[in-house]
Design a binder for these strands. Structure first.
Length: 735
DNA sequence: AGCACGCCGACT
DNA sequence: GTCGGCGTGCTC
């Protein structure tokens, strides 16, 4: 008769759980989902109990160690989220301890108490409740406090009373002595319910149809792909659905690809939903994250807005999940536990019987295919809301042209025309810095990064050469380090140069550049966006950052300075990315009454992607791209996993990957294809050599059958210790 | 990943 | 004589 053990997920890179003897003290209630402190080797670690079970008979009893301490009196992680995490472990073939870590905010991972920060509240006593302001005629400050508390329904957190002015605490103290108010420590309520100012804008016909279609599936799993062109009003559809869910007393989880998109969405929600709204993203500190996490779990927040990691937010009464900009690659974690928040949202919805809405103007090919095959309900908002017209898009052939800072005559003329008319223009260039190449005109030397297979970018303002791949930076040399010539020149252009050229050419319109360099400082992004929104800046220059979300009402011209960057991408997802980016950027042009114009500069104006996109729109592009994926046997018509490895010695990488491929091929069934090892497209990065093996499968089960045994085997390899390696299931790029 | 243990080189 | 270099093995 073997004895009961607790199986614990330990924060370590090992792909297994560890068995422990239960604590000495008696325990009541379920243990799965509770945190424990356990001895692990020579250390004490915080682990999460996954289940109880019988000890492995092969394991000598003497090697079992005992749980040191039970940290929770009840499970911190609810059963439904534990289930999602365990599913992720088996799907991504990632160590359970590291996956389980993603379930908890950092503060709880460290073993801190699972309670929210306390906050001081003031509330009216019975006597205070019935007092009228006249009763405090001789104490105007007390009167004001009374009025505020009565207005708020009897209680307010101290934080909300700061505006009462210097010394209000003393006044409050006197009221406390009179028995009018009482102080109380409450668990932090992260938000008070917002008071909507608009009760819901009237929906147009298409929006209404979408809302109705989704609403008939709110009581179980369903997935809806809401394909809405920029400006078609997807947010109104979200809001209408959320209102229904909130009315049922259930919670909504809204995922967005990046933090920058949360403020405007939050404001929008506050304006039109009677809900307590919580945020969850990496810009918050540990305490804030813990408080929001616990409040979401305990049902004290109604709407949660977050980035990728918020897919793991527990909800007491989950009712709806929304993924906005579902195609965005930011939903896939790119290191460590490489999960896709979009795919996990779907799994979570299925497990927890929830509806999920995927929204995008440019859906991913995977989602489009799922919609076409009837796995998702396809809903379209094909027209811009109101009177807005789609923009006019054309290409500009750069071949044989004299350019000024990379700008063609046509683009400059168009800029002049739109700015003269008092409108705004946006120039998009996905390359920051002044110039991507510094070259010696005497001997041909170029400034290369010493740690990467890449050129260093010249930043004029800083007077430096920076590597955008590893952060390496050095001062701009005065002369060529090879031949000492002072004839150093640059080639190509980045946003910094664009800004310089355009400021000179259009000195009176206000030029503002928005990229990672100009928005590094806190609040700088907002300040610049604000200048653009208010019309103080009418010429906007930006990288990807500017492609999503932000709307400028007077923006009528969009120029893509260099479309060829994207068109030349070698990755199988390159065309999809490029089409999405062009469509998203183009969508910035023209709102309301003003028609928009889009100019795409290229040296390959007859590129099939561009022709299809311009003539048939994103839908036509997607049709063509899906056909190509099908013919080439790429996702979504096949399934991929990528084994990556990197090390300071190229030999260590090759040795590991070759052993991996040998063994993998031996184990793999016929339907699997192992390719590699091949060097990564940029082989050396930050001083490390990188290479990879691609595994391709027609059907998932065969792929997972291999990974299930192969991953633990790799973990045990001696050559694995000399490299950093990782498995990426459903990689989104092959680099 | 940590961390301990172990077996060889240049130092107070 | 030791401090410490990192190869190797283990973690219930």
């Amino acid at each position: 008769m073997s004895e009961t053990v607790w199986r614990v997920a330990i924060p370590s890179p090992l792909r297994r759980l560890f068995d422990y003897l239960p604590p000495d003290t008696p325990v009541s209630g379920p243990v799965a989902g509770r945190r424990v402190r356990v001895p692990f080797g020579s250390r004490q670690l915080v682990g999460l109990v996954v289940e109880t079970g019988e000890a492995d008979p092969a394991m000598p009893r003497s090697r079992l160690r005992r749980i040191s301490r039970l940290l929770d009196e009840a499970p911190v992680v609810p059963a439904d989220m534990l289930r999602l995490a365990l599913w992720s472990v088996s799907y991504y073939h990632h160590p359970p301890g590291e996956v389980l870590e993603h379930l908890l905010p950092v503060a709880l991972r460290r073993g801190e108490a699972a309670t929210r920060s306390a906050e001081r509240w003031w509330q009216l006593s019975e006597e205070g409740r019935h007092l009228s302001p006249g009763d405090l005629a001789r104490a105007p400050r007390q009167q004001r406090i009374l009025a505020r508390l009565q207005q708020a329904g009897g209680a307010l957190p101290a934080a909300e009373l700061q505006d009462l002015g210097e010394g209000w605490q003393g006044v409050m103290r006197r009221m406390e002595e009179k028995g009018l108010v009482a102080g109380e420590e409450r668990g932090l309520t992260v938000a008070l319910p917002s008071e909507p100012v608009d009760g819901g804008v009237a929906l147009n016909e298409r929006q209404q149809t979408a809302v109705e279609a989704i609403s008939s599936h709110l009581d179980g799993f369903s997935c809806h792909l809401l394909e809405g062109v920029t400006g078609s009003g997807k947010t109104e559809v979200y809001l209408a659905l959320m209102r229904r869910i909130l009315a049922q007393g259930r919670q909504c989880l809204v995922l967005v690809p990046e933090i920058a998109l949360t403020p405007q969405l939050t404001q929008r929600f506050r304006d039109s939903l009677p809900a307590r709204i919580g945020l969850y993203h990496s810009g918050m500190n540990e305490r804030e994250r813990r408080d929001t996490w616990l409040a979401a779990r305990d049902g004290e927040l109604d709407v949660l807005i977050g980035t990728r990691s918020a897919v793991f937010l527990p909800l007491k009464h989950p009712g709806l999940m929304i993924l906005d900009e579902e195609h965005d690659p930011a939903f896939k974690q790119q290191d460590g536990f490489r999960y896709s928040a979009r795919d996990l949202a779907l799994v979570r919805a299925r497990q927890q019987a929830l509806p999920v809405v995927l929204g995008s103007a440019t859906p991913s090919l995977e989602s489009l295919r799922n919609a076409r095959d009837g796995r998702y309900q396809a809903l379209a908002l094909p027209k811009r809301a109101g009177k807005a017209k789609p923009p006019l898009i054309r290409t500009v052939d750069l071949r044989g042209q004299d350019l000024d800072g990379g700008l063609s005559g046509q683009l400059l003329t168009a800029l002049d025309r739109h700015l003269r008319a008092g409108n705004q223009a946006l120039l998009f260039l996905n390359r920051r810095g002044y110039a991507p190449v510094l070259i010696c005109n005497q001997c041909g030397w170029t400034a290369d990064c010493s740690r990467c297979d890449a050129r260093m970018t010249y930043h004029r303002g800083r007077g430096s050469l920076d590597c955008h791949h590893c952060g390496n930076s050095r001062r701009l040399p005065r002369a060529c380090p090879e031949c000492a010539s002072e004839k150093l020149g640059v080639a190509g252009q980045g946003t910094e140069k664009l800004e310089q050229v355009l400021s000179r050419r259009f000195p009176d319109v206000g030029v503002v550049r928005i990229d990672r360099d100009t928005t590094r400082r806190r609040g700088e992004m907002d300040a610049r966006l604000q200048a653009a929104r208010e019309g103080r800046a009418r010429l906007l220059i930006g990288t990807q950052m500017l492609a999503k979300g932000h709307d400028f009402p007077d923006l009528t011209l969009v120029g893509l300075v260099d479309a060829d960057q994207g068109l030349m991408s070698a990755d199988f997802r390159g065309p999809e990315r490029t089409a999405q980016l062009i469509t998203q950027v183009a969508g910035r042009a023209g709102r309301g009454e003003k028609p928009g114009e889009v100019l795409i500069q290229t040296r390959v104006p007859d590129h099939p992607l561009l022709e299809t996109l311009i003539q048939g729109g994103y839908g036509a592009f997607a049709d063509a791209a899906l056909r190509e994926r099908n013919e080439a046997g790429f996702p979504p018509y096949s399934h991929l996993a990528l084994l990556r490895a990197e090390a300071h010695q190229r030999e260590a990488v090759n040795a590991f990957l070759e052993e991996a491929v040998d063994e993998g091929s031996r184990r793999a069934s016929q339907e699997l294809l192992l390719m590699g090892p091949v060097p990564a497209p940029m082989e050396r990065r930050a001083g490390r050599y990188r290479a990879q093996v691609l595994i391709q499968a027609e059907a998932r089960p065969a792929l997972h059958a291999l990974l299930r045994d192969w991953a633990p085997w790799l973990e045990g390899l001696k050559s694995a210790r000399k490299v950093r390696w990782s498995l990426d299931v459903d990689p989104i790029d092959l680099f």
